[in-house]
Design a protein around this nucleic acid. Structure first.
Length: 887
DNA sequence: AAGGTGACGTA
DNA sequence: CGTACGTCACCTTG
């Protein structure tokens, strides 16, 4: 068979190539946000992709060493003995690389007691015998011996792994002057420093080649050792044991028993889901594209989770109106009982039409306001007939002003995908379709004026939404499904209303504050410049470093990526060690400008209606919390006096009487008490005593009345820190006390509240065993790093795992309260409205005369949102603005 | 123009 | 070496 028709078997020495990549790529340029180094993985995969494109192997396998030890160490304990410790930055990368390869459906092979090269040797021999063209990729020179007619070695050059030198028989002869099979004979004589195998003294490559050309093998040479004259001859005779040993060790084993043979290494389609997941974790974006491209775009090449999904045929789009639509809706929805996918299309804010789809049919319904012939559509939309949507809140809001009502949202694919993978950011419909269905939904590139790809019909999109909803629901566990049904989906219209209503903000109050802070900041800056004798940009950490550490010669602070930290904590430390008026002025300047920033952002956010409309990101956090953006109304200042002035700008709108605020008191600690069943903590909440005073009394063994403010501060920091996985070191830093004292404090705390510690430990253990944590209401958060060998990653994951059920349960609880409060307001047809949610607080705008009734509703619903072993206490307050309403 | 970083506001 | 977020200004990179 001519070579070109032979199947190609590509065999890679994973460990040696990854190691080469590790040294070839800058270590600092490839680090994930979590601190995991990825340069070796990146370099390896990049090389592999190039190889796959260039060599187009039909069969592929990657061999790994299991450990640093093999049979060679038993025979010669010093083998590879001079190799230093593997760099810690490299160690953790190998398992991740293997994971990535598995996701790409590439077989990895390793064998106890053998090195990767032995596996390559065995498979290349088998491959050759079975008629393959074999390509061996290795950074170990011993593999030169494998080269022959059918076997070519690809060897990385000094520059790294991107360029591989091709060694076929001729290339080896040209480079070394011998046949490939003779290479180990030479290596035995010369020795291999990196393997700690010394050769014959004074014998280098030149001499060795000359001898082997003459005698053929090292063994034959040794037979005739007495014929060799000179110093090298003497050395050869004296050091013949070295040669024998080297030759023994550098012979690759070609008959290792392996679980696979070459034909098992046939290339398979990648597991697109898994590849995305792994690459996302490694933060490889361009590589992901390259891998996907490698597969071509054929849908049948892609597999989902573990089975190949059949590609359903896209139903033909029917355009329908009037009676035909009425009939179809009734049939397709099985008289309002069966769900349909729904897609609302707007152009420049105007609704253009609706895509509606069942499992097998899809319809496009054009729409224009004021037309009377869409009764069937309007009534289906307004009915409880179940609907599946993508980004339901956004879609729902587009209907505002159309007179159309939308009810019956049964599933939101955005929310479903988030509940499955809460740590990932929201994906587009096309992204989810690709990820979960393994199919490609053409999406026009929004940056192109004339898109290359035509968008699919909204009706077809609705069909994908429908199928995606089914797929996601089937993947959700019962707990998450109930969170979807009982909490998240019902919350969609509630949040939509809150966003649409917005909150009234007084422009004059903000304007006054802005100009006052501006003057103040300028004055502070002037004084600061005077202190240092020049003008610098006080907002530039880089310039500040020059001033503080070069000009003023202050002691160095905590190191960060760009130099030394100039954050508030570091500046406070500096003030202690090296007092200077500039430091205080700088801090004041920061305070003033930061609040001014917030004020300006708010001013820009005031709409034509005099109100600020935030957007709540329902999938914005991994724990279940809601986030707020554009503008963020969840980080309005409160801690300082000027900060509270910002809050005073939030006021009831025209026609409303007052603002009502309601917040949970110590909800996270209460959840801890409930989940840990700690008797002491439960008693603390049932006693009616101030929590920190009660806990302080227990810890310091004094009467509650004898708990001093200092004691209370310490206890408070400890209690709050607990739910975050605080360490003694962290506590000492925060309280500016000795680590030993912090350690004692923690010990005393746990001596009194031991069940809390047991619970926190248990959470992490459970999460490690299950792979996820769960909230009181069944919300899950998966973790992958709890078993990581990388300590930083693992301990980060542990703290997140310990915090998630607590923060997540609190999020569940306030969401449940929001649902019932909203339902009550609507049922009783109150004019008052819920406007803001700030994690444990709700803000309402109260219609005239409704304060008592609303207060009662809010108190009851918030307190009753969960039944815990401690009461849920709610603090309420009202007033003419957000600041005054706070208690 | 886009992306990363430091700093800092909230719960 | 404490969780969860979003936003800004600055600065480097393309």
């Amino acid at each position: 068979m001519p070579d070109s028709e032979k199947p190609t078997l590509l065999l890679v020495d994973g460990h040696s190539l990854a190691f080469r990549a590790f040294y070839a790529l800058p270590i600092d340029s490839f680090v994930t946000r979590d601190g995991q180094h990825t340069n070796a993985i990146h370099g390896f995969l990049s090389m592999l992709i190039l190889l796959l494109q260039k060599e187009k192997p039909t069969h592929l396998g990657v061999a790994f060493d299991i450990s640093r030890f093999s049979f060679r160490n038993r025979e010669y304990p010093e083998y590879k003995g001079t190799r230093g410790e593997t760099p810690p930055e490299f160690k953790g990368q190998v398992p991740l690389l293997e994971e990535a390869l598995h996701a790409m459906n590439i077989t990895t092979i390793s064998k106890e007691d053998f090195e990767a090269d032995d596996i390559l040797a065995t498979l290349s021999l088998q491959g050759k015998q079975q008629g393959y063209r074999v390509l061996v990729v290795s950074g170990d020179r011993d593999t030169i011996q494998l080269v022959d007619d059918d076997v070519t070695l690809l060897y990385p050059n000094a520059r790294g792994v991107s360029e591989l030198k091709r060694y076929d028989e001729d290339a080896v002869r040209e480079r070394y002057g011998i046949d490939p099979a003779q290479y180990p004979e030479i290596a035995a004589l010369v020795g291999e420093t990196s393997d700690n195998l010394p050769g014959v003294d004074k014998v280098g490559e030149k001499t060795a080649v000359k001898w082997i050309q003459q005698y053929g093998t090292a063994a034959e040479l040794l037979e005739h050792a007495d014929e060799i004259s000179g110093v090298v001859g003497n050395n050869l005779r004296e050091q013949r044991d070295r040669v024998v040993r080297n030759r023994k060790l550098n012979r690759l084993v070609r008959d290792v028993e392996l679980p696979v043979s070459p034909h098992d290494l046939v290339r398979n389609p990648i597991d697109a889901t898994a590849v995305r997941e792994v690459f996302e974790r490694l933060q490889f974006r361009t590589l992901l594209d390259r891998v996907i491209k490698l597969e071509g775009t054929a849908d049948d090449q892609l597999v989902g989770d573990d089975e190949r999904l059949p590609v359903a045929a896209i139903p033909a789009v029917r355009t329908m109106v009037d009676e035909e639509l009425a009939k179809w809706l009734d049939t397709a929805s099985e008289h309002g009982t069966a769900p349909l996918g729904l897609r609302i299309v707007t152009i420049n804010g105007q609704v253009e039409g609706f895509g509606i789809a069942s499992a097998s049919e899809s319809a496009w319904v054009p729409w224009a306001p004021g037309r009377p012939d869409y009764e069937a559509l309007a009534s289906w939309l307004a009915s409880d007939s179940p609907k599946y949507l993508h980004e339901a809140k956004r879609q729902l809001k587009t209907l505002a002003g159309t007179g159309l009502e939308l009810n019956g949202i049964a599933f939101d694919t955005t929310l479903g995908a988030w509940l499955l993978r809460p740590s990932t950011k929201a994906d587009t419909l096309g992204g989810l379709t690709y990820y979960y269905l393994g199919e490609t939904l053409p999406e026009p590139d929004p940056s192109q004026l004339v898109p290359e790809t035509e968008a699919v019909s909204p009706a077809t999109e609705a069909w994908y939404v429908f199928r995606l909803a089914g797929e996601l629901a089937s993947r959700l566990d019962p707990g998450s499904l109930s969170v979807s049904r009982e909490i998240e989906v019902p919350l969609v219209p509630v949040l939509a209303r809150m966003e649409t209503q917005g909150v009234a903000v007084s422009a004059p109050v903000l304007a006054e504050l802005n100009s006052r802070l501006g003057t103040q900041a300028a004055e502070i800056a002037r004084q600061a410049y005077a202190e240092i004798g020049r003008e610098v940009n006080l907002g530039s950490p880089k310039q500040l470093q020059e001033v503080l550490f070069d000009q003023l010669g202050m002691p160095k602070t905590r190191q960060n990526k760009t130099g030394f930290s100039t954050d508030a904590a570091s500046l406070a430390d500096l003030q202690d060690q090296h007092p200077h008026p500039f430091l205080e002025l700088l801090l004041q300047h920061r305070d003033a400008t930061k609040i001014r920033q917030i004020v300006e952002t708010l001013e820009k956010g005031i709409g034509a209606d005099g109100r600020v409309h935030t957007t709540y990101e329902q999938t914005g956090s991994a724990t279940g919390r809601i986030s707020s953006n554009d503008p963020n109304l969840q980080n309005i200042p409160i801690k300082t006096e000027v900060g509270r002035e910002v809050r005073s700008a939030f006021q009831p709108g025209e026609g409303f009487e007052t603002l009502l605020t309601a917040d949970y008191s110590q909800i996270e600690m209460r959840i801890m008490a409930h989940l840990s069943e700690d008797e002491g903590l439960i008693e603390a909440f049932n006693s009616g005593e101030d929590l920190h005073r009660f806990v302080g009394a227990r810890i310091f063994r004094v009467d509650p009345s004898e708990v001093t403010p200092v004691m209370r501060t310490k206890v408070k920091a400890m209690s709050y820190g607990l739910a975050y996985g605080l360490s003694a070191f962290g506590l000492s830093k925060q309280l500016r006390i000795e680590t030993s004292e912090a350690r004692e404090l923690m010990a005393d705390y746990f001596a009194r509240f031991g069940a809390v510690r047991d619970y926190l430990r248990g959470v992490v253990e459970q999460a490690r065993a299950d792979g996820y944590t769960t909230t009181i209401f069944g919300r899950r958060r998966p973790f992958s790093d709890l078993t990581s060998t990388n300590r930083v990653l693992r301990e980060n994951a542990e703290r997140q795992a310990l915090n998630s059920p607590i923060q997540g349960s609190a999020a569940d609880i306030i969401k449940r309260a929001m649902l019932t409060i909203d339902a009550d307001i609507r049922e009783r047809m109150l004019g008052s409205r819920m406007l803001l949610q700030v994690h444990d607080e709700l803000v309402f705008e109260v219609a005239p005369g409704e304060l008592p009734e609303l207060t009662e509703i809010v108190r009851t619903r918030m307190a009753g949102a969960a039944t815990l072993s401690v009461p849920l206490e709610v603090q309420l307050g009202s007033g003419p603005n957000w600041d005054a309403a706070a208690h």
